[in-house]
Design a protein around this nucleic acid. Structure first.
Lengths: 202, 202
DNA sequence: TAGAAAACTGACTGAGCGCTCAGTCTAATT
DNA sequence: AATTAGACTGAGCGCTCAGTCAGTTTTCTA
């Protein structure tokens, strides 16, 4: 093998992501992680200093993986109106949460928020990710207010938070198998449009 | 003492609600519950057959406690338009979730949804509660469509789900200490109004 | 007030947990 | 061929936990 470094480390991180997402942090045993990866339990603690350390590593790579993708999306030039960009961003968010289901399941863990209360790095990562999403919605809204597609009277930041919270709620419904979110997609878009659009277009 | 039945049983149930809400199901130890209530650990298992049994009992009494209150609210006559009733219902929901914070924290536990996948009673309770909320929003919306305050073209059930998901998201933000929801309240109401209102009023 | 039933007790159990450590293996370097 | 360092191992330690049980106390009933 060419690469001597960290042969099993990545495997462990990947399996831990899978298990933490499916069963939760507390209900995932190191023994299970060991069985799944084929690594001895000792190996896991050779690479990571603790179970919590694994969780933090996942968050770290989650941030490194997702934030750039969102920055790229945000900086891509677009011919669309701000209102259309809000719709696009919703689609993009739903697509992202579907294609990285495990990562977003981890973001919805209670443990993440408990850890955030004592661990500044954890809190910083969570905030960075959420703020990034809300920022994208906000700049779509202010853009829309400039181009006339979105009502200039509404407060951009707060509305961005509300749109984000709507979409985030849908994602959680999907994760909990409560409702068929696909069936709600069109109505979600329509609702956001009614919420934001400028009614006396120039 | 007059009441022979269940002297400590209620105390245990109450303390368990508190602990499950604050620390989560998995992170609550029976020993802690014993210390908090002053009941011996054996007493807990005399009244409840297992830890899971306690959780189910909490859900059961949650249902018995909350559903009637919502039914009463739903059946109360009102002079308001449907659109105003949607706003009222949002207030009512936010008020309820604040005054029974522990109960709603338990409804947001991942463990509840895990249990629901194997335990039909649990699933039935969760669905009953959520459906009740959504039903109230739905009947406010159909009422509004009848009285002309709400756009007749929008699908009532789906919009009810979306409004509910918005409010539910706010509640979760509040629980996770992520945002100051009070600051968003006015904007939440305004957004819902813009989303639903009838624009060519008779 | 005797006796039965119900409520309660806390020391105990065994399974499972996160984590350690003394040591082996592998592959590159000298 | 000998040395070395990093990757890896798995038995096992200390501890926590949900749940048990043999026995005591309280309450109800006849």
């Amino acid at each position: 093998m060419a690469n001597t470094n960290a042969k099993k480390k990545d495997t462990i991180l990947q399996a831990a992501t899978f298990l933490f997402a499916r069963k939760g942090y507390r209900d995932t045993a190191m023994g299970e992680l060991s069985k799944m990866t084929g690594a001895a339990e000792g190996t896991i603690f050779y690479h990571f200093k603790s179970k919590q350390g694994i969780f933090l590593s996942i968050l770290r790579s989650l941030k490194a993986d997702i934030l750039p993708e969102f920055e790229r999306y945000r900086n891509a030039e677009s011919e669309h109106t701000g209102l259309d960009m809000v719709e696009e961003t919703i689609s993009f968010y739903l697509y992202m949460t579907k294609s990285r289901e495990d990562l977003f399941a981890i973001l919805n863990q209670r443990y993440a928020y408990e850890l955030a209360e004592t661990n500044p790095e954890c809190r910083e990562i969570l905030e960075a990710i959420y703020n990034c999403f809300v920022d994208i919605f906000e700049s779509a809204i202010t853009g829309g207010q400039r181009d006339g597609s979105i009502d200039p009277a509404i407060p951009a930041r707060k509305s961005a938070l509300i749109v984000f919270s709507m979409v985030d709620s849908m994602v959680r419904f999907r994760m909990n198998n409560l409702y068929d979110v696909g069936a709600l997609y069109k109505e979600l878009i329509d609702s956001c449009r009614r919420m934001l659009e400028n009614r006396q277009r120039s």
